[in-house]
Design a protein around this nucleic acid. Structure first.
Lengths: 211, 211, 211, 211
DNA sequence: CATGAATGAGAGTTCATTCAT
DNA sequence: CATGAATGAACTCTCATTCAT
């Protein structure tokens, strides 16, 4: 899927980038505070430091702002993930390290991640697909780490499921904060999750599925 | 937290129940389709089979509809969980059974659960608290099963985290459907999750947390 | 102008009278409190002690209620004026007495009179005419007293103007209450008005009008 | 009481003034014709020459329009009163002149004054207070003229009452037009009122109040 | 004769978007 | 390139009135 482009009537690309960054910064705060629907374009313009007219020089619709915000969040998440994951590492410690970094990241960006989760459905269909794709890429990064770090005793499906679990448990730290953050710190949460991941319930019996 | 009551100007309580059920049924479909914000009160009325005026005899605000919908979903989820969980059972098989039932439930009600997840933030504060409380109760049910089923080798924190993980992984089946339901059936998803839960990565080494 | 009739679908005339009295009593309070427009028919029904359906058995429109209320107020005012005015009296003291009684009446019924003043314009045209006619009749009563009480030195125009002045100054006690009732009691207000009326400014000089 | 400000989202203050004048002009006509409650905001917008959206750029609520209208009327009345009253004059002729001017003013603005009288009660509480205060100021102007013009034989209470009487009799010319304007012209009305005021009933006998 | 559930036209208000300056 | 006044479709909610029971 090609990078979805949001057209602007401004020619100067550097300016477009600058203005959009202002916009994203302003909008993210508002979306966190009151959600996408309850935020008006006027508020976004104001928080971005320019007029409503100017706002519309850099986007076509309000949904474009949401897309830019989501895209920017994914971008930042992805960049930090890439920075903390070395795909050449093959030890289990590198997996643990990747998980730790990812959980820390989810702690740092919990507001942003929460917003994204609650508002993607407001994106137009094609933007949703684009975002979904980004997500798949991130899960794929986790899959890669897992594949590299574990002995090949894991089936491909297990790997995928593990990656999904880790991915969601990271997000869960943010969007279930009112429950989890009473009982855990990001430290203890991370430690325990890793422990459960590695050890299971410690009551292993050759398990065979079936209803 | 006392049951939040939505006032109605209709006196006949049986009628209130009946009409609200029509309403919930109509609204849920619409919310699933287009989300709460993009659904108009007139559409809700129409889908419920009565006029806009009648709709407002049974609620005060549009948000009331959302609350009734959320409440009804939680109610159904909770009832089915209670029906499938026997808190007197103490075997690990009973835990497995509880998880299976819960995942099946999340499969059956994935649309509803998805809606709830995406729209709770649109509820007024007090209704959000009420819903959060419901969730805590359900997680508590899972905690109880875990506590009963496992040897007491688990710390309280581990129990809580496990319950949260199971709970979220169930929901994840629904709200990450576009990713997961390509790769798994609810059967294979359930089996694998249970296996991972019980066995961990099978690469157990005395693990000591810490950065 | 014939007595304007408000039709009812109920045959039993005694019942109609009874129900309408309940209605007027309930409505007047509400109109005083919040005005005609901000009072709903449901509130009127409730304050009257019966259901909205029953209310509409005794009137056709909400405006009918207003008319009944206005009519009832005028009726009461008129009755009390008639009781306190003896058209056969010819002394100036009888004029003074009539004025006193009228001012006292305006004090007793200030809320009702205020309501009427603020809401007549909401009546349909024909009802307004009817009410206007009632008013003329009352002013005419005052004119009669004046004519009887004073030596015929007064021109007909003077008599009419005097009657109007007295009439309005009585009402003014009620609808300018926030100003007048700080500075006067109904007693002192009455005394002073009568004094001014009889004496003028006491600076009489043969006055010739003209710009 | 500080000037009550109606906020606008338009920045250009000159434009705000201009648009609000259009608005007041349009609204006053409508209010005179059908009253505040039966006039819709759409009608106001249309009569003002702009769209409903534009209307709401210059006010927050429909009640704001009413306030602006009332405020504007009072403003105009007050300005004309100030222009026609010279507080340094001390002759009785100056009082007569003030009254004449005021009555003429009430004749010129009878529609506006009528509207105000019938609709103030629809204003929010604080706006009502504001308007009441304006009225007090105008009555105070009349009091001043009276105090200056008459020998000090008048008690303060008499002065206040006189001012109120003159004030109300002026308004009465407008809001009792259907009765008074059949019998009088503004000229004859004025002349007669002034005569009555100065001479009283010409039947002066040492009057002692009391029941 | 009494009830109150049902109706829907219509009200006030908002806000994404445009475009002349 | 920036501005912000103007627009009007569309929204939520109200309430006078009706009519089956």
């Amino acid at each position: 899927m090609a990078k979805k482009e949001v057209p602007s009537s401004i020619k100067d690309e550097a300016l477009v980038t600058k203005r959009r960054n202002q916009m994203i910064k302003g909008a993210v705060t508002l979306f966190i505070e009151k959600g996408f629907h309850k935020t008006t374009t006027r508020e976004i313009a104001k928080a971005s430091g320019f007029s409503i007219g100017t706002l519309y020089e850099y986007i076509r619709t309000k949904e474009d702002v949401l897309f830019l915000v989501c895209d920017s969040i994914y971008q930042r998440v992805k960049e930090r993930m890439e920075a903390s994951i070395d795909p050449r590492e093959t030890t289990i410690q590198s997996l643990v390290h990747a998980i730790r970094s990812y959980y820390q990241l989810m702690d740092d960006m919990q507001d942003e991640v929460l917003v994204m989760y609650q508002e993607v459905k407001s994106l137009p269909r094609d933007a949703q697909d684009y975002v979904l794709q980004k997500e798949r890429e991130m899960v794929a990064m986790l899959e890669e780490v897992i594949r590299n770090s574990l002995s090949n005793s894991q089936s491909e499906q297990q790997v995928q499921l593990l990656a999904n679990n880790i991915f969601v448990q990271g997000q869960m730290w943010g969007f279930r904060r009112w429950i989890l953050q009473r009982q855990f710190t990001i430290q203890s949460y991370t430690d325990l999750q890793i422990q459960l991941l590695l050890e299971g319930l410690g009551e292993y019996e050759p398990f065979k599925g079936g209803a």
